[in-house]
């Protein structure tokens, strides 16, 4: 595991030495801080709108960080040829994939911690309530979901030639699953065969990322989900992440190293 953690350390160093993550933090802050202190028409519901906007920003920013960081990892190793001195060490291609996954996933986790702290402070200052448990659940489930996304993007990075095309396709795919994934079964019901079977198959095959979205519980101050359900959701995410990593390894182990 030494190699895996060493590799993930390099991913984290790259992330905080690049400027894009700071840009995302600053943008999120700039957009949300004024909203926190402005009261429109003395409407109390404005706090919910504020929460909704901030949570959406957190979700979009986290997806941008996860997809953007992961998409360039293996491609940059091959393009800059840093993969050669790396694989000349006692490191297997599987460990490289695992190291990149851990690094990107930890990077997402760290970013989420900053985002949720910011969100908690902002809403706490305004509403004077501190629902720590639901914030922790939101963060934990979102982080698990990002594990699936990171795995998917890693697979994309050994399939697609350019990181930009990989990032775009993965972003559309993830956004599609988040927005439509949960409704595919209802869509299938209204279709005739063979389209119905095809859509149903897609419904059962895709990772249901929308199950990890507990934004509404946070925004409308609902009670948290049972922790058992959280653990089951994390196991579900782990299975999909493992599947994507295995598929990445299958493709990458035979892949020529130079682009």
């Amino acid at each position: 595991m030494n190699s895996v953690f060493a590799l993930s350390g390099v991913v984290l160093k790259e992330l905080y030495r690049r400027k894009d993550i700071y840009v995302l933090f600053v943008l999120t802050a700039l957009i949300t801080i004024p909203l926190a202190f402005v009261t429109f028409f003395h409407d109390d519901k404005i706090v919910r709108y504020l929460k909704d906007v901030v949570m959406l920003l957190i979700w979009v920013s986290a997806l941008v960080i996860a997809i953007g960081t992961t998409a360039r990892q293996l491609h940059a190793e091959r393009e800059n040829r840093t993969i050669f001195p790396l694989l000349a060490k006692p490191v297997s291609r599987g460990q490289v994939i695992l190291g990149k996954f851990v690094g990107c996933w930890l990077a997402c986790g760290l970013s989420l911690v900053v985002f949720y702290l910011f969100f908690g402070l902002l809403t706490g200052l305004r509403e004077h309530i501190w629902p720590i448990e639901i914030y922790l659940q939101g963060l934990w489930l979102q982080w698990a979901m990002l594990g699936v996304v990171v795995g998917l993007v890693l697979l994309g990075s050994v399939v697609f030639t350019a990181p930009s095309s990989n990032a775009t396709i993965c972003f559309i795919l993830v956004a599609g699953i988040l927005l439509l994934g949960g409704h595919l079964n209802q869509v299938a019901l209204q279709m005739s065969e063979p389209s119905r079977t095809i859509v149903y198959t897609i419904y059962f095959l895709i990772p249901h990322l929308e199950w990890f979205d507990v934004r509404d519980l946070i925004i409308y101050d609902h009670t948290p989900v049972a922790w058992v359900d959280c653990i089951l959701a994390v196991c579900y995410a782990a299975v999909y992440s493992a599947f994507f990593l295995f598929a990445t390894w299958l493709v990458f182990r035979r892949k020529a190293l130079n682009l």
Binding site: V10, K13, E14, R17, R18, N80, R81, T82, I83, F84, P85
Partner: peptide
């Protein structure tokens, strides 16, 4: 040729 992580 030199192939190293240039940000390190």
């Amino acid at each position: 040729l030199t192939y190293y992580y240039k940000f390190l």
